[in-house]
Computed example of a mutant assay.
Amino acid sequence: MNWDIVEGNWKQFKGKVKEQWGKLTDDNLDVIAGKRDGLAGKIQEAYGVTKDEAESQIKHFESLNKDLPPR
Rank of each mutant, 00 (worst) to 15 (best):
P70Q: 13
E55H: 07
G15L: 09
E53F: 01
G41I: 01
E55F: 03
K16I: 02
H60T: 14
K16F: 11
V17N: 04
K23I: 12
W10I: 06
D52L: 08
K23P: 03
P70V: 14
D52M: 07
K35F: 07
T50V: 07
N2P: 00
A54M: 02
A33I: 04
K11S: 03
K23Y: 10
R71K: 12
L64G: 04
K23W: 11
W3S: 04
V49Q: 01
K35V: 09
N2C: 06
Q20C: 10
K66R: 13
K23G: 11
N2D: 15
Q20L: 03
G15I: 08
G15Q: 10
F61G: 01
E19S: 00
W21V: 01
E55I: 00
E55Y: 03
G38M: 09
I32Q: 10
E55D: 15
L64M: 11
K18R: 13
K35C: 02
Q20H: 08
R36Q: 13
R71H: 08
E19I: 07
T25D: 00
S63G: 04
A33R: 15
V17A: 13
F61L: 13
V49C: 04
Q12P: 00
Q57K: 15
G34T: 10
N65V: 00
E19V: 09
K18T: 00
Q12I: 07
I5N: 10
A54Y: 04
